[in-house]
Design a protein around this nucleic acid. Structure first.
Lengths: 155, 155
DNA sequence: CCTATCTCGGACTAAATAGATCCGCAATCT
DNA sequence: AGATTGCGGATCTATTTAGTCCGAGATAGG
């Protein structure tokens, strides 16, 4: 069970975009230089965030990315699932219905106990991430950080 | 983020072994037939569970696998991490210290806020799985299931 | 006590999936 | 009109996963 490397990238990029002034945008190239990341691949990930509705993109000169919503309305879960996909890590293939020990159909009406417990754990994970917004993240960084980020990122 | 397919296999196999009478063992071939799984590959996974201390293996005729501890002392987390490894899904590579926006060392004494939140979510997931034992699973299946399992699996 | 058989154990090979990159197209602002 | 930027597809590589094989060790029966 592993999240893509790009998860760290987009989380930091989203946090950086949350520090911009309303209306400003940052291009993929600017963000890549800011964190020293491979620009083409980062662009592809930001693209995924746009398609997920987390970021908004504007093309042309002086274009780039910005948050699609206020930072308080964007959760870490939305960002993570935008790059990793919404698929559950545990997939029940109903092996209890196969082989010599196959259970009769009437015993398989409700979902497998094991699948249910695994789903519970995944829900706990999702709830934890859904409880943290980008605004919460900004609250935990030094107060002078946004100004520094804007200066270095855009300049 | 995806768990191996074999996760479902070993969870069900462990639940089946928990239904055996004390002292009995089931071979990899028996378990594979019971669930219609590729026998050699399943053996590899059971091997991993043995190395993790969840199962105990005995070789020779009439040998096979059994639980290494009482079912109440084996959690789903131990089983899952035995096949998937203990690695955390989110790996912080400290990209905040790279590129043009690299933060000064003194600002990076404590772990990155984002890494902390991701770790919190993973802890929630682990706690959820650690709260369920094989004994809890057996409590949720029909009372006559263990006898049926023993008959079909060993017979 | 010896032998035959049955078991796990680890090394090895192939397939699939994800990671990473490149190039051409459409849209926008100067 | 030209330059700049995001968008989507096609491509290539690497890592992980899936699957197979043969050998070492132990037990049961003669």
């Amino acid at each position: 069970m592993k999240l893509p490397t790009s998860t760290e990238w987009v989380l930091h990029c989203a946090a950086s975009l949350a520090q911009l002034q309303s209306g400003d945008t940052a291009s993929a190239a600017q963000l890549a230089a800011y964190y020293d990341l491979p620009a083409p691949y980062l662009a592809k990930q930001l693209q995924a965030l746009t398609k997920a509705g987390v970021l908004a993109a504007s093309t042309g000169p002086r274009g780039g990315f910005r948050l699609a919503r206020p930072a308080a309305e964007i959760t870490l879960l939305q960002i993570v699932e935008a790059v990793d996909g919404p698929a559950r890590p545990y997939e029940c293939r109903e092996i209890r219905q196969q082989g010599r020990g196959a259970l009769p159909r009437e015993d398989c009406q409700d979902t497998c106990v094991l699948a249910r417990k695994m789903a519970d754990a995944h829900d706990a994970w999702r709830r934890s991430l859904a409880g943290v917004s980008l605004a919460d993240i900004l609250d935990e960084i030094p107060a002078d950080a946004p100004a520094r980020t804007r200066r270095i990122l855009m300049g």
